[in-house]
Computed example of a mutant assay.
Amino acid sequence: MTDHARIYVEEAEKYHLLISKQPLLHDVIEEIKPLKGLDVVDVGAGTGRLTVALAPLVKSVIALDASAEMLAVTAERLKQKGLRNWQTHIADHRYLPIKDNSADLVVAGWTVAYIANDEVKDGALNLQETIAEMKRILRPGGTIIIFETMGTGETAPNPPDMLKSYYKRLQEEYGFAHRWIRMDYQFESVQQALELTQFFFGDEWAEKVKQSQSSVVPECAGIWWLHV
């Protein structure tokens, strides 16, 4: 099994190369919550997939992540764009270092699942505490948007079993609306697809790419949002 925790600490740049092969999401977010003038918090920001896309469009953005190495990539990307309306902070999802009622939008991309899935002790409690923290930092009328996988290599939603209870809780216990989109990886070559899928998804996926000889790896993603 791939050690994602190690990757996020030791190979943040390579991880960013992988996710850079997927579509940007600012237009999807804009459909749910108009971005102009918003103060945004990106929970589990990683290398800035959402932070860097949103920063030019909003009033401010704070990127939070447990990995200092991932946040360093985010910071460098923001600096390269000449942006100044941002901060980064190391944080646990359940204890956000943000003041009450200080954000208009909280986004969380492919991150809450790590502490809320069925294979993690107290996954349901972790989700409860995370959602409570997100609500705490939001102003009235604020919005939470969560992105998670609905299946790598899938052309229609087929999420891993360990995530199904988490997704069900988002809708049934917390009242999130939901839809899904395609987030296919568009690699530059079959060789790059082989290398990067093996790096993050493991040998089984690398073998699938080898057999298909395709530089495109299908991916479905779920979007959950809640206006509070």
Rank of each mutant, 00 (worst) to 15 (best):
L35E: 04
A116V: 04
E31D: 14
V61D: 02
A116Y: 02
L196A: 08
L24D: 11
A116N: 05
K79P: 00
L64W: 10
P140N: 14
L194H: 09
L17M: 02
V112D: 04
E173I: 00
A55G: 00
S67T: 03
Q213P: 05
E30M: 08
V61K: 07
L194M: 09
I90T: 11
K14M: 11
A5F: 15
E76F: 07
Q128V: 13
Q22K: 11
V120P: 10
W110D: 05
T149W: 15
Y95R: 09
V106Q: 01
P157T: 10
V107T: 11
D42K: 00
V28T: 15
T197L: 13
Q171I: 13
L71D: 06
A132T: 14
E129A: 06
V52E: 06
V61C: 07
I223P: 01
K36V: 15
V52M: 10
T51N: 05
D161F: 08
T88Q: 06
E30W: 00
R139Y: 05
G151Y: 02
D161G: 07
I145K: 04
E154M: 14
Q213Y: 07
L170Y: 07
K164H: 05
N117Y: 07
D184G: 06
F176E: 09
H89V: 06
F187T: 04
A113V: 08
K33M: 13
L78T: 12
R6Y: 12
L38V: 12
A68H: 13
I145C: 09
L127D: 01
L54N: 09
A103F: 00
V73E: 03
L64M: 09
T197I: 08
A132L: 05
I62M: 01
A53N: 05
I223M: 12
V43P: 06
D42W: 03
G37S: 10
T130E: 02
P23W: 03
G37I: 03
K164W: 04
M134F: 13
Q171E: 15
H26P: 10
P157Q: 02
R84K: 13
A75L: 02
L50C: 07
G175H: 13
T152R: 00
W110I: 13
